[in-house]
Design a protein around this nucleic acid. Structure first.
Length: 401
DNA sequence: CGTCCACAGGAATGACGGGCGG
DNA sequence: CCGCCCGTCATTCCTGTGGACG
């Protein structure tokens, strides 16, 4: 943080002379797929069984995978896909495996674009109708006789934001694209999302289902220890620190990803400090850091007016405010910086967006005769806000007074 | 018991930058 | 280059609403 005071030489020297904690930094990245996934062998064999018909060129059933975040769904699936790709290549079976994370992709269009690009079509970032892309993909699969397994990670997000139309089209295209085929693997964090699915889509998509249970605290600890052994040099960490990571992040429902993230950040903290050994103190620091980074990333990427609304909500103390007072506050901020203000309607929308981001909390309140408002309480302090907007001079100014 | 406040939040519509195929 | 379609952001117009006040 305050490396400004250090000279570059000092930093470099420190880096050179510091003990090397990490042995294999990669192993703690969130998208890393370990060779061995403890406590998931049942699930892995199930997935493999469902997909294995591919090896004799028949179409595997569609598959739905459930489980809360950090239960190894993605890792296990990727693991199977990877092995399957190897095996099919070795045996001369033509098959393509496409992985797409719906949340990362963001829109239906980009999900389809992923599929299209991986099947050898080139598709622009934007500009085509969704249905156009779909039919291109279908004809590509058909004419090239492709055998495609399409993994849709966080598929619940797709359904929630865009409905099940795309899934319907994808699942029903099975008949029309012979002699090629398309098998779908849906991965969902949300156990309830089936209910939002139309009956026809559901029955087609969930020809097979596999549930990933959460890790127990004990399992989480084992996983983390194993990972640590692989990622760090033997003397570079204490067992207690690793256990603390497991405990801190796994309390509610055995989320392995958070635990691994925490361990990695803690390692980085320790390394930067030039410590000989990663201990519990580093884990505590890392925990704080993760929270703060998450918030300040969210803040920086906010559009201008959202920032202004947020400032209006946070400014002059913590007292919770009505939509009306926020709007007044906001529009005076706009006037002062010569920006045209948006409508109340839009600002109301922005407030709900900030709410879903967890930056403010908005609850509906009735004052009877005196109307009805969203009562808005900021969830972050002025200081955090100021720090996050630090580079953004134009906005920082408004935070004064 | 109805009124009426101060908004919530849905629907329709439009402006805009980007990208297509022809 | 044109006409068309996309997603995003915003505006306009609108109907809905819980409960204190009279």
């Amino acid at each position: 943080m305050d490396q400004n005071s250090e000279t570059l030489e000092a930093i470099f020297h420190k880096a050179l002379s510091a003990p090397k904690l990490f042995n294999n930094h990669e192993a703690l990245r969130s998208d890393y797929v370990p060779d061995h996934l403890p406590f998931r062998s049942d699930q892995i064999t199930s997935v493999a069984q469902v997909l294995s018909p591919l090896l004799h060129s028949s179409r595997p059933s569609n598959l739905l995978i459930y489980g809360k975040t950090g239960t190894g769904k993605t890792a296990a699936t990727k693991h199977v896909i990877f092995k399957l790709a190897q095996t099919s290549k070795a045996n001369g079976v033509k098959a393509s495996f496409v992985y797409s994370n719906v949340r990362m992709a963001g829109t239906e269009y980009r999900v389809l674009a992923d599929l299209a690009n991986q099947t050898g079509l080139s598709i622009p970032f934007t500009g085509l109708a969704v249905s156009e892309v779909l039919s291109r993909v279908q004809s590509q699969i058909k004419t090239k006789k492709l055998h495609v397994v399409f993994v849709l990670d966080e598929i619940d997000f797709l359904v929630k934001s865009f409905g099940d139309r795309l899934l319907y089209d994808l699942t029903t295209s099975a008949d029309t694209i012979t002699p090629g085929f398309l098998s779908m693997v849906g991965i969902s964090n949300d156990l309830q999302f089936k209910e939002e699915l139309g009956a026809r889509v559901l029955s087609r998509l969930s020809e097979e289902e596999i549930v990933f249970p959460p890790y127990s605290a004990q399992e989480l600890t084992t996983i983390l220890q194993e990972r640590a052994k692989f990622a760090f040099n033997p003397a570079a960490y204490t067992e207690a620190a690793v256990n603390l990571c497991a405990a801190l992040s796994g309390l509610e429902h055995g989320d392995a990803r958070r635990a691994v993230d925490l361990l990695r950040i803690a390692g980085e903290v320790a390394e930067r400090e030039g410590s000989m050994q990663l201990d519990e103190r580093h884990v505590q620091i890392a925990l704080q850091k993760i929270d703060q980074d998450r918030i300040s990333d969210a803040l920086k990427s906010l559009p201008l007016h959202a920032k202004l609304v947020l400032i209006a909500a946070v400014k002059n103390n913590l007292e919770n405010k009505s939509s009306g007072s926020i709007y007044e506050n906001y529009s005076s901020l706009c006037k002062r910086s010569g920006i045209e203000s948006l409508t109340t309607r839009r600002v109301s929308g922005l407030v709900t967006e900030l709410d879903t981001l967890g930056l403010v909390s908005a609850t509906l309140v009735n004052y009877g005769r005196y109307g009805r408002t969203k009562k808005v309480t900021p969830q972050i302090s002025q200081d955090v806000l100021r720090q996050a907007f630090h580079e953004d001079g134009s906005v920082t100014q408004l935070l004064q007074d």
